[in-house]
Computed example of a mutant assay.
Amino acid sequence: MRAAVFVFLALSLICAPQAGKAHALDPGYLDLRQLAHGTWQVLWRVPDVKGQPMNIGAVLPEHCKPGRSPEPTSEGAAWVSTWVAECDAEIAGQTVTIDGLERQKNEVLLRLQPLNSETVTLRFTPKSPVLTIPVNPSTWTVLVSYFQLGFEHILAGWDHLLFVVALFVLVRDPWRLVGAVTAFTVAHSITLAMATLGILNVPAAPVEAIIALSIVFLALEILKHKKGKLRLSEQYPWIVCFCFGLLHGLGFAGALSEIGLPPQDIPTALLAFNVGVEGGQLAFIGTLSLLILTWRTVAPPIAAQFHSIAALVAGYAIGCVSVYWLVERISGF
């Protein structure tokens, strides 16, 4: 009984306060750009929480004045403040703190752009709200930071996860499913790179609506399934996933463009982000498979009895959530 778990997942999406938003756990962003010796331009971006800036603050090294961010101004989905800090000494080897991050679920990315050395990308987490700026930065820090960002971004994107859940219901063969998810990743990697680099520019609102529509399509495929007669998404899952992956990549690009890419390591950051997304998708599929295996092992009679209606119930649950998102996003144009 593959779809029992999906029903509860879909219903939880309806009740989740962030269900209408694709990326409710967007990270914060701190950019330090050196203008001259001892002078730094600071950009501090804080996620929006119910119309107010998240209760976190950037704290620069002690010898930098001002060391804290001024009151931010709203830019819709985030709050932004900028200022110029004067530092009496080098900040390499010093600590930067995100005050209050330990009480949040979000993360914060730091991009450090010195005049005479490589750009550094660091990642603050609730467990690591204080970081030391490396004296000799390496490309490895970019790889790790953006891989983790991609991995966690897919797990926080409810609409992308529901798309994977619908695929899981439709495609029963494990290798075909992995192939379909990989085709999805290849496709969104293309549009993500094009949009992030400015080659392709599409408004975010229609993209988010079409992403919801892609989930509606898969829900209909589940509901119209007939034994012995394969639907389009079951016959050619990799083609369907590739086409929809092009759209989902534009959705990923919206979040990544707000975070920014290190100018010196754009290819590395894009690669790491995409590999992280693929890793997150495969980890999610593995978790679902383990849950279903456990269900079948612990309660085989119940699982067998529920099998006949499971896909139908899952299809309606996924359809209801995706239609709700579609209407909400269209109404927000």
Results as ranks from 00 to 15, higher is better:
residue 1 M to H: 14
residue 2 R to G: 12
residue 7 V to P: 10
residue 9 L to K: 08
residue 10 A to H: 11
residue 11 L to T: 12
residue 13 L to E: 09
residue 14 I to G: 14
residue 15 C to E: 14
residue 18 Q to A: 15
residue 20 G to F: 12
residue 22 A to M: 13
residue 22 A to Q: 07
residue 25 L to Q: 15
residue 25 L to H: 13
residue 28 G to I: 06
residue 33 R to C: 05
residue 35 L to C: 02
residue 38 G to L: 09
residue 39 T to S: 15
residue 42 V to K: 01
residue 42 V to G: 03
residue 43 L to R: 14
residue 44 W to C: 00
residue 44 W to A: 03
residue 46 V to P: 13
residue 49 V to Q: 14
residue 49 V to H: 11
residue 50 K to G: 14
residue 56 I to M: 01
residue 58 A to M: 00
residue 65 K to N: 11
residue 66 P to K: 03
residue 68 R to N: 08
residue 71 E to I: 02
residue 72 P to K: 09
residue 72 P to E: 11
residue 74 S to W: 07
residue 76 G to V: 00
residue 77 A to V: 03
residue 77 A to H: 13
residue 81 S to Y: 13
residue 86 E to W: 13
residue 88 D to P: 04
residue 90 E to H: 12
residue 91 I to E: 06
residue 92 A to P: 04
residue 92 A to F: 10
residue 93 G to S: 03
residue 93 G to M: 07
residue 94 Q to R: 07
residue 94 Q to I: 02
residue 96 V to M: 05
residue 100 G to H: 09
residue 108 V to R: 05
residue 109 L to N: 00
residue 111 R to T: 04
residue 111 R to E: 06
residue 112 L to S: 03
residue 112 L to H: 09
residue 114 P to E: 07
residue 115 L to S: 12
residue 118 E to H: 13
residue 119 T to M: 05
residue 119 T to Y: 04
residue 121 T to M: 06
residue 122 L to N: 04
residue 122 L to G: 12
residue 123 R to K: 00
residue 123 R to A: 00
residue 124 F to M: 00
residue 128 S to P: 01
residue 128 S to H: 14
residue 131 L to C: 05
residue 140 W to F: 11
residue 141 T to R: 15
residue 141 T to E: 15
residue 144 V to I: 14
residue 144 V to C: 10
residue 146 Y to F: 14
residue 147 F to E: 08
residue 150 G to C: 12
residue 151 F to I: 09
residue 152 E to L: 10
residue 156 A to T: 13
residue 166 A to P: 05
residue 169 V to Q: 07
residue 174 P to A: 03
residue 174 P to R: 09
residue 176 R to P: 06
residue 179 G to R: 11
residue 181 V to D: 06
residue 185 T to C: 09
residue 192 L to R: 05
residue 193 A to Q: 13
residue 202 V to W: 12
residue 204 A to N: 02
residue 206 P to T: 11
residue 206 P to E: 09
residue 213 L to M: 10
residue 213 L to P: 00
residue 214 S to Y: 04
residue 220 L to W: 08
residue 222 I to E: 01
residue 223 L to Q: 10
residue 224 K to Q: 12
residue 228 G to N: 01
residue 228 G to S: 04
residue 228 G to Y: 01
residue 228 G to H: 04
residue 229 K to H: 12
residue 229 K to L: 10
residue 230 L to M: 11
residue 240 V to S: 07
residue 241 C to P: 13
residue 242 F to D: 08
residue 244 F to E: 01
residue 245 G to S: 09
residue 253 A to Q: 06
residue 254 G to A: 03
residue 256 L to K: 00
residue 256 L to F: 02
residue 258 E to Q: 10
residue 260 G to E: 04
residue 260 G to F: 04
residue 262 P to T: 00
residue 269 A to E: 12
residue 276 G to M: 11
residue 280 G to N: 13
residue 282 L to I: 14
residue 284 F to G: 04
residue 285 I to D: 08
residue 286 G to M: 04
residue 294 T to N: 06
residue 299 A to D: 05
residue 304 A to E: 14
residue 306 F to N: 00
residue 307 H to S: 09
residue 308 S to I: 07
residue 311 A to C: 02
residue 316 Y to I: 08
residue 316 Y to M: 02
residue 317 A to P: 10
residue 318 I to L: 15
residue 319 G to S: 02
residue 320 C to D: 10
residue 321 V to T: 07
residue 323 V to D: 02
residue 323 V to L: 13
residue 324 Y to T: 08
residue 327 V to Y: 04
residue 330 I to R: 13
